[in-house]
Amino acid sequence: MIKILFFAALRERLDCEQYLLSCDGNMLQVTDILQQLQSRCHSWRQELSRSDLLCALNQQLVPLSANVQDGDELAFFPPVTGG
């Protein structure tokens, strides 16, 4: 199982804080997971296709080409605005 978290404006627009995805032990890329999530509905496709989407794997920023495996924590969020 892969735990997927959404934050800030993205969490609100998807109306989802956490999503669990079964990966059947397969090694996937973040882009594969994004495709699965985008296929859920029109709004998810729109929100998860944004060019400024950021991704963290196990709490480290990674490119969308990163590999994901069973037990990983993946997070998607908009550009950060702290400080």
């Binding site: 800030a8 920023l61 550009p79 702290g82 400080g83």
Partner: peptide, 30 residues
């Protein structure tokens, strides 16, 4: 540290104003 914090640390601001609530947009200058 401030330059990197503003671009790398997962923090997001939401403003609550008289006209509604708005997520602050990231600035290209940052």
């Amino acid at each position: 540290i401030m330059d990197y914090l503003k671009n790398r640390a997962p923090l997001w601001k939401k403003e609550h104003t008289s006209n509604g609530d708005y997520w602050v947009a990231a600035k290209t200058s940052d």
